[in-house]
Simulated assay, not measured.
Amino acid sequence: MGFLLSKLLPLLLYPLGLGLLLQLLGLAAAPKGSGQGSDPRSSRRRQASLWLSGTGVGLIWLGAMPLTSRQLIWGLEEQAAALTPQQLPRADAVVVLGGGLRPALPPRQGVEVAEGGDRLLRGVQLVRRGLAPLLVTSGGRVSFTGNDPAPPEALWARDLAQELGLPAHRILINPGSRTTAEEARDIGALGRQRGWTRVLLVTSAFHMPRSMATFQQRSGLTVVPVSCDYQLPGRAHYGQPTVGNTLKSLVPDAEALYLSTVALKEHLGLAIYRLSFKPWEPWAPG
Rank of each mutant, 00 (worst) to 15 (best):
M1R: 11
F3P: 00
L5D: 04
L8D: 10
L9S: 05
L9R: 02
L11F: 01
L13K: 12
P15V: 10
G19E: 06
L20D: 01
L21K: 03
L21T: 14
L22F: 01
L22V: 00
L25M: 15
L25A: 15
G26N: 03
K32T: 05
G33E: 04
G33S: 03
S34L: 13
G35E: 13
Q36G: 13
R46Y: 10
S49I: 02
S49M: 02
L50Y: 11
L50S: 10
L50P: 00
I60S: 06
I60V: 15
L62C: 09
S69K: 07
Q71M: 12
I73A: 10
I73G: 05
I73S: 02
G75S: 13
E78S: 12
A80L: 08
T84W: 06
P85G: 10
L88S: 06
P89Q: 08
R90C: 09
R90F: 06
A91Q: 13
D92Q: 05
D92C: 07
A93W: 06
V95R: 08
V96R: 04
L97A: 04
G98M: 08
R102L: 14
A104N: 14
R108C: 01
V111L: 07
V111K: 10
V111Q: 08
E112G: 09
A114P: 00
G117T: 08
L120G: 05
L121M: 13
P133N: 03
L134D: 02
L135R: 12
V136H: 11
T137P: 02
T137Y: 00
S138P: 00
G139S: 10
G140R: 03
R141C: 04
R141V: 11
V142S: 10
F144T: 06
T145A: 13
N147C: 05
A150W: 12
A150Y: 07
P151Q: 13
P152A: 15
R158L: 13
L166F: 11
A168E: 15
I171N: 13
L172M: 14
P175T: 13
T179K: 13
A181M: 12
A181H: 11
D186N: 15
G188P: 09
Q193P: 07
G195I: 09
W196E: 01
V199I: 15
L201F: 04
T203K: 03
T203S: 15
H207D: 05
H207Y: 05
P209T: 12
R210A: 07
R210D: 11
M212D: 01
Q217L: 08
R218K: 14
S219V: 01
S219Q: 01
G220K: 06
V224I: 07
P225M: 01
C228P: 03
Q231A: 14
Q231G: 06
Q231W: 13
L232D: 02
G234Q: 13
R235K: 09
H237D: 15
Y238T: 09
T242C: 01
V243N: 03
L247G: 10
D253Q: 14
E255D: 14
A256R: 03
A256D: 02
A256T: 00
L257M: 07
L259I: 00
T261M: 12
A263H: 04
L268Q: 11
A271N: 00
L275P: 01
K278N: 07
P279M: 06
W283P: 02
P285Y: 05
